[in-house]
Computed example of a mutant assay.
Amino acid sequence: MKIHGDLMSGNCYKLKLLCNLLQIEHEWVHVDIMREQTRTPSFLQLNPNAKVPLLELDDGRTLSESNAILNYLAIGSDLLPQDSFALAKVQQWQFFEQYSHEPYIAVARFIACYLGLPAERRAEYHAKQPGGHRALRVMEQQLEHTEYLVHSGFSVADISLYAYTHVAPDGGFELTEYPAIRAWLDRVAALPGYQPMPASP
């Protein structure tokens, strides 16, 4: 199978991290999002939504949206709980990541690192800070009580949120005031098979 993505993107990196942790064989197809390679005719045939990551199976079927791919690849492993409530808690955190975390932390990082914090985006960058810190405080509150985000242990919920949280300082979100998050980041980075994200642009 192939995974199309850009490892600088947290949404893509989370899949690379999962594949390393579970030793899933795959071909990584680099897609440069800054050069608009998701808008080529060949890519649009695979994903009309023009976004990465994209999973392309051996039989030609495709799957988009990072957390959907993450859960598909984790089926049958300890990283995706079989208990219905634990599974729902995993999904709760994944929805939180997409709606309450990524729109602030990932976007601020993109403006700062990819665009170089241009004057015309500076107000937007600063406007993202309060929402990002709200999300971090929610995570901090949970991680003060549990080693991982879901009581059942390390799961795809942690991978989903690790991706952009560990590079949050790139978007101006210093983590010094979040000791539980920092300890959690260290635990994830110590897992066998861990692969770091490439250095930020």
Results as ranks from 00 to 15, higher is better:
residue 66 S to M: 07
residue 54 L to H: 07
residue 61 R to D: 11
residue 72 Y to L: 13
residue 43 F to K: 05
residue 65 E to S: 08
residue 54 L to M: 04
residue 23 Q to F: 11
residue 28 W to S: 14
residue 29 V to R: 12
residue 32 D to K: 11
residue 57 L to T: 10
residue 60 G to A: 08
residue 19 C to P: 02
residue 25 E to A: 14
residue 51 K to M: 11
residue 43 F to A: 01
residue 61 R to P: 03
residue 52 V to A: 02
residue 41 P to C: 06
residue 52 V to D: 06
residue 68 A to L: 10
residue 71 N to R: 15
residue 69 I to D: 10
residue 22 L to N: 00
residue 36 E to A: 02
residue 21 L to K: 12
residue 37 Q to E: 15
residue 41 P to W: 01
residue 28 W to N: 14
residue 51 K to D: 08
residue 62 T to K: 03
residue 37 Q to R: 00
residue 28 W to C: 13
residue 23 Q to P: 11
residue 58 D to P: 06
residue 44 L to P: 01
residue 31 V to F: 00
residue 35 R to I: 05
residue 70 L to M: 05
residue 49 N to Y: 04
residue 71 N to H: 13
residue 65 E to I: 12
residue 55 L to N: 06
residue 22 L to M: 15
residue 19 C to G: 04
residue 32 D to N: 15
residue 56 E to Q: 13
residue 46 L to D: 04
residue 54 L to V: 04
residue 20 N to P: 04
residue 43 F to W: 04
residue 32 D to W: 03
residue 67 N to W: 06
residue 42 S to A: 15
residue 25 E to T: 09
residue 47 N to I: 09
residue 72 Y to M: 03
residue 51 K to R: 15
residue 24 I to F: 08
residue 51 K to P: 00
residue 49 N to Q: 15
residue 68 A to W: 05
residue 64 S to E: 11
residue 37 Q to T: 00
residue 51 K to W: 03
residue 39 R to Y: 00
residue 31 V to P: 00
residue 38 T to A: 02
residue 26 H to F: 14
residue 39 R to L: 06
residue 40 T to F: 04
residue 41 P to F: 02
residue 33 I to Y: 01
residue 51 K to H: 11
residue 70 L to D: 02
residue 57 L to W: 06
residue 39 R to F: 05
residue 39 R to C: 01
residue 52 V to W: 07
residue 21 L to R: 07
residue 20 N to W: 10
residue 40 T to V: 08
residue 57 L to R: 14
residue 41 P to A: 01
residue 57 L to G: 00
residue 45 Q to K: 08
residue 67 N to P: 02
residue 21 L to Q: 13
residue 56 E to D: 07
residue 65 E to L: 02
residue 53 P to D: 10
residue 35 R to L: 12
residue 23 Q to H: 15
residue 49 N to A: 14
residue 23 Q to K: 15
residue 36 E to Q: 14
residue 28 W to Q: 14
residue 62 T to F: 05
residue 20 N to F: 12
residue 66 S to P: 02
residue 67 N to K: 05
residue 39 R to K: 15
residue 27 E to D: 15
residue 21 L to W: 08
residue 28 W to I: 10
residue 30 H to I: 11
residue 50 A to H: 02
residue 27 E to L: 07
residue 21 L to V: 12
residue 45 Q to I: 01
residue 60 G to L: 07
residue 53 P to Q: 07
residue 51 K to C: 14
residue 45 Q to N: 10
residue 70 L to G: 05
residue 34 M to H: 13
residue 32 D to S: 13
residue 42 S to R: 08
residue 66 S to Y: 04
residue 27 E to R: 09
residue 33 I to E: 10
residue 72 Y to C: 06
residue 57 L to P: 03
residue 46 L to E: 05
residue 31 V to R: 03
residue 51 K to Q: 15
residue 33 I to R: 10
residue 27 E to F: 06
residue 42 S to G: 06
residue 58 D to E: 15
residue 57 L to N: 11
residue 66 S to H: 03
residue 40 T to S: 09
residue 63 L to R: 08
residue 59 D to R: 02
residue 42 S to T: 10
residue 56 E to I: 04
residue 27 E to M: 08
residue 29 V to Y: 10
residue 23 Q to E: 15
residue 68 A to C: 14
residue 38 T to F: 05
residue 24 I to E: 07
residue 19 C to W: 09
residue 58 D to H: 09
residue 58 D to R: 03
residue 72 Y to T: 03
residue 40 T to N: 02
residue 59 D to L: 10
residue 36 E to Y: 12
residue 30 H to R: 13
residue 68 A to M: 08
residue 29 V to Q: 12
residue 60 G to M: 14
residue 35 R to S: 12
residue 69 I to E: 07
residue 47 N to A: 08
